[in-house]
């Protein structure tokens, strides 16, 4: 009964679209704090996607994956990011290389390109076939965000959102990997964020700034 309802109203698609919209929002946001907040929203949506598909597909091990997502991406990583932000005492502006409207336009262009070029032929996964395209769009938009921002910390946020997109792709393709592998991947990512945070403070110390345009001495 509830399953039919989920399918009739394409709940999974709605959640995935929510994730896409939040990523597009990041590409135009001006304040670092709101970027982090949107990342948290994005992670909650990812967890919701996993939970709903666990229920829909009747795969109980996905509930553990959802719990892992909530714990790591909704609590631990954002907590750590906010701590680093406070420590760095950076100004609150994102300082993009290009203006917000242009960045929005590019994000929309990427979505259009992905939707018109990713064929449905290779992946026939029924309910989640839109989720894959959305996931690829999310990955590309976050790459774009990483390339066009001045502050090192926005690269970290871009990377994290990219990983959310990756997990969306993973779940929509395979309904989750074996749980032990999942644990390892999440552990790696947590360590990654911690180490990136460490480097951020070192960059701040060595360059007296966290702008990436200072990091340009190594060339050729």
């Amino acid at each position: 009964m509830a399953r039919n309802w989920l399918q009739a109203y394409s709940v999974l698609d709605f959640i995935a679209v929510g994730m896409l919209l939040s990523v597009i929002a990041v590409s135009s946001q001006k304040r670092l704090e709101s970027c982090v907040r949107t990342y948290v929203l994005n992670s909650w949506l990812l967890a919701a996607f996993v939970t709903v598909s666990a229920f829909y597909m009747g795969m109980p091990h996905l509930y553990i994956a959802a719990a892992l997502t909530v714990l790591s991406k909704c609590f631990l990583i954002p907590y750590f990011l906010r701590k680093v932000l406070r420590q760095l005492r950076v100004t609150h502006d994102v300082e993009p290389y290009i203006s917000a409207p242009l960045s929005l336009l590019a994000a929309f262009a990427l979505v259009v390109v992905v939707f018109s070029f990713v064929s449905q032929g290779v992946f026939v996964t029924g309910v989640t076939r839109n989720a894959l395209k959305i996931a690829i769009s999310i990955i590309l938009i976050s790459l774009f965000v990483m390339m066009t921002r001045k502050k090192a910390i926005t690269q970290v946020i871009g990377l994290l959102i990219m990983e959310n997109g990756l997990f969306l792709a993973g779940f929509s393709l395979t309904y989750g990997m074996p749980i032990i592998a999942e644990l390892g991947v999440v552990f790696d990512m947590l360590m990654g964020v911690i180490i990136l945070g460490l480097f951020l403070t070192q960059i701040k110390k060595a360059f007296v700034s966290v702008d990436l345009d200072k990091l340009t001495t190594l060339k050729g």
Partner: peptide, 14 residues
């Protein structure tokens, strides 16, 4: 922890 080595490490990890 020199400027160059931090820059290289950041580029590497990202």
């Amino acid at each position: 922890k020199r400027q160059n080595s931090i820059e290289a490490a950041w580029k590497y990890i990202i």
